[in-house]
Design a protein around this nucleic acid. Structure first.
Lengths: 341, 341
DNA sequence: CTGAAAGCGCTTACAG
DNA sequence: CTGAAAGCGCTTACAG
């Protein structure tokens, strides 16, 4: 491994000058800089990250914290953020804290985040009060993406989940449906993502706006995935007097619902319509009507937000208004007018 | 930030002893160790990674290289590997080299991987001869997961893609189909993943075994996602004299195929059967028949494989037989006997 | 614009 | 089993 000293010797300058020249600091004459660059090139030199970090105090790394990796939304956000970050020369340390309490605890208490990274990005990861306090004590810059909870001092990027729920429900109402069920995800445990709750609230608001009251028996809660959607829908069907339409709080659940209906011999959308939220990668192939949210844009924006603080620019400490990205209806084949009885 | 010296002072020992005690080295008396542990606890001390790396030469980090993050298989592998790695105390640096040639080049030539990580995991990322030579010159331990190409000296974990293609096709043949189309992914560019080619070969072999010859007009190539499956299927339908069954080289394409068929008014499986490969997360909700492969297991195994070299144990340099995991048929609702004409 | 020197916070022979 | 000291390879005031 060639060291900075080798480059300094070859270029005939001090190591301090090599360091400055290679990092593009302005206090180096052009002729010196080019000499250094040439020498570094010849020796195929690049600085040791560990040494730079120890001496400079910056890690050039950001921690991306996710609750899972496989869900479509998480993957899309991380993928987009990764590109922005790497393009800007930063590394991405991935932490999946999942449902595993010890993983969350280890990350927050033992991982020593401030010594490992310069910034943190929280994707779809709600935090309890305890965790929020811990994070605040880290004094790292950060950003949250669709995380339900807001970290004081960090920008937040998200959609308006309640509005998305309203849009989905209004789509069904507009088609003429009046018996609309809601299947929604994530039971209310400590780390449940509030998005589903919000979306359900949107559903209720849309009904209320028409003077309707959501029927408790038309509301079923289950896991926020396809399997949960299937189970919730089976439960719904077992209760008798089925709805003419189902609003699901995410596309995975909606797909499970469509599957359960077809399995039960119920035609979609002729007998029952289904609408979800997200515009999952496979929603198109599924023919699923949904309310789309821009996932990649959220990842890009979030990463972009970090670039300033990473470069040392302290954030404008003004009040941080959340960035709320638009959602929009994408009507496909899983919704239609209710059957004429 | 408390430093090792603070702990040493409080415990009344040297920093060398603190370092040894905290890392669990055997050359420390139990009474000393517990004194050190207590002091570290009191001061909430944990070693600075940068300093440890610089002094010790180990990064405690592994690079996970992927071609994308959103595909189901990649996410499932990374998720499983992440858990094993973090549990063992290692960090995970994520590199998405995507289709971006400059990302691949930067990672291999500029990122200085040996100074950043102790090991590398290649997920579903085939490499050209040039890249292989570069990787070999890095002299890092590593492992490949379903990457098509094998890196000399690295274990490889994968499935038998050709056998999977055969199994899928034999399923259709067993149902009585004789006009079976193949839609398959990834055109043959330099970085195309060979899995699709192999799976298609399995399809051909299955036909050959029955004395049949694959018809060129029943074979269509397109992108390895739902959209590509849709387009390939539309092309197939436009050629007239359609098949009674379609084998798709991955589930995403299969879902796109089912969608294209339904959109064209063709019932699945009554008029045309569709089978994929992977057992994608949503294949169940989709009712898709498929040949399943164990993704999480591949991630776990791969991460486990790295643990030895990471701990300093040099690999048994014997010949590395690839670990080939089993695949199995999961018949759902998208396949059935051909229509009686 | 440039250099000498100190220092970042650990780990590792080496010696005892 | 333990410690003093050197060293890992950079960056950063400080001085000029």
């Amino acid at each position: 491994m060639t060291r900075i000293e080798d480059v300094a010797r070859l270029a005939g300058v001090s190591t301090a000058t090599v360091s400055r020249a290679l990092r593009g600091l302005p206090t180096v004459s052009e002729t010196t800089r080019s000499r250094v660059l040439l020498a570094a090139e010849q020796l195929d030199y690049s600085a040791s990250p560990s040494a730079s970090r120890l001496a400079g105090g910056k890690t050039g790394t950001v921690a991306v914290i996710v609750p899972r990796i496989t869900p479509w939304f998480v993957g899309a956000v991380v993928e987009a953020a990764e590109e922005v970050l790497h393009r800007a020369g930063y590394e991405l340390l991935l932490y999946n804290i999942g449902g595993r309490e010890h993983a969350r605890h280890r990350l927050l208490h033992r991982a020593n985040l401030p010594k490992r990274v310069d910034a943190v990005m929280l994707v779809a990861t709600p935090m309890g009060a305890d965790d929020l306090a811990t994070i605040a004590s880290l004094a790292l810059p950060g950003v949250t993406v669709s995380s339900g909870t807001v970290v004081p001092g960090w920008p937040s990027i998200r959609i308006d989940d309640r509005a998305a729920g309203r849009t989905a429900t209004e789509h069904l109402l507009g088609l003429g449906h009046r018996r609309i069920a809601c299947i929604w995800g994530d039971p209310a445990d400590e780390y449940a993502h509030p998005a589903h709750l919000e979306r359900r609230r949107g559903y209720q608001e849309a009904l209320n706006a028409l003077g309707m009251l959501p029927e408790p028996r038309l509301s079923v809660e289950n896991r926020a995935d396809a399997e949960g959607g299937r189970l919730a829908t089976e439960e719904l069907l077992s209760r008798g007097d089925p709805p003419t339409a189902i609003f699901a709080s995410c596309d995975e659940m909606a797909m499970g619902a469509v599957n359960a209906l077809r399995t039960a011999g119920v035609r979609v959308p002729q007998e029952v319509s289904v609408v979800g939220i997200d515009n999952h990668d496979l929603a198109g192939a599924f023919g699923l009507s949904t309310v789309a949210q821009p996932a990649a844009e959220q990842g890009q924006l979030a990463a972009g937000t970090l670039l300033g603080p990473l470069a040392g620019r302290s954030r404008t400490d003004g009040e941080l208004t959340p960035v709320i990205l638009p959602t929009w209806l994408v009507a496909r084949d899983s919704t239609g007018p209710p059957r004429e009885d």
